[in-house]
Structure formats: structure tokens, C-alpha cells
Measured scan of single mutants.
Amino acid sequence: AFSSEQLARLKREFNENRYLTERRRQQLSSELGLNEAQIKIWFQNKRA
């Protein structure tokens, strides 16, 4: 489960760009304390 802070950040990123570069995913992973797979799957689900 994502914290409300993490979700807000993911939604902001998604609004700016529906697709993440690998580098951006790595940055978000480290900033949010999530693993890259969690972020990747969140974006895939959000696009679906």
C-alpha cells in the first residue's frame, strides 16, 4: 500500500508524463522509498 504522500507524488508525475524513463523511475524509487517495480506497475495500472 502507498502512503497518501507517495500517491500524491505519483499522481503529479503521471500528470506531467504518462511514461517514465528508467532514470526517472530510479529517482522516484529512491525519493519515495519504493522499489522500481512498484512504481512501474502503478504507472501501468494508471494508464490502463
Rank of each mutant, 00 (worst) to 15 (best):
W42R: 01
F43D: 02
F43R: 00
F2P: 05
N35D: 15
R25H: 05
R25N: 09
K11S: 14
Q27E: 13
L7S: 04
Y19V: 10
S3T: 15
E36F: 05
A8T: 07
F43Q: 01
R12D: 11
F14Q: 02
R24I: 08
R24T: 06
A1E: 12
G33L: 05
S3K: 04
E36V: 10
R24A: 08
E5P: 04
L10N: 00
N35Y: 06
R24M: 09
E16V: 07
K40S: 14
R25A: 15
A37D: 15
Q44N: 09
R9I: 11
A37G: 08
Q38A: 12
R12F: 09
Q27N: 07
Q26T: 09
Y19W: 11
K40L: 15
A48M: 11
Q26L: 10
Y19D: 07
N15W: 07
R23E: 15
R24G: 05
N35E: 13
R18P: 15
S3P: 02
Q38E: 11
L10K: 00
R47D: 07
Q38P: 01
E36M: 06
L28I: 07
R23L: 12
R25T: 15
E31Y: 03
E36N: 04
L34I: 12
Q27Y: 08
L20M: 06
L7I: 11
Y19L: 07
E22V: 13
G33D: 06
K46T: 15
L20P: 15
S3A: 04
E13I: 05
L34Y: 01
R18Q: 13
E13K: 02
N45E: 14
E16K: 14
I39W: 03
A1G: 13
R47P: 03
L32K: 00
S29E: 05
N45H: 10
Q44L: 07
K46S: 14
E13Y: 05
F2R: 01
S4F: 10
Q26N: 07
S3N: 10
Q27K: 10
R23T: 14
E13Q: 03
E13S: 05
N15G: 09
E31R: 02
G33T: 03
A8R: 14
R24D: 05
Q6V: 11
L20G: 02
L34W: 02
L32Y: 02
F2T: 02
Q6S: 04
L20R: 00
A48E: 12
K46L: 11
I41Y: 10
R18E: 10
F43A: 00
R12H: 11
S4V: 12
K46N: 12
F2G: 02
K46Q: 15
E22M: 09
R47A: 12
N35V: 05
R12I: 12
L10A: 01
K46H: 14
L7A: 04
A1K: 12
A8N: 09
K46W: 14
K40A: 15
I39A: 01
E5T: 08
A48G: 08
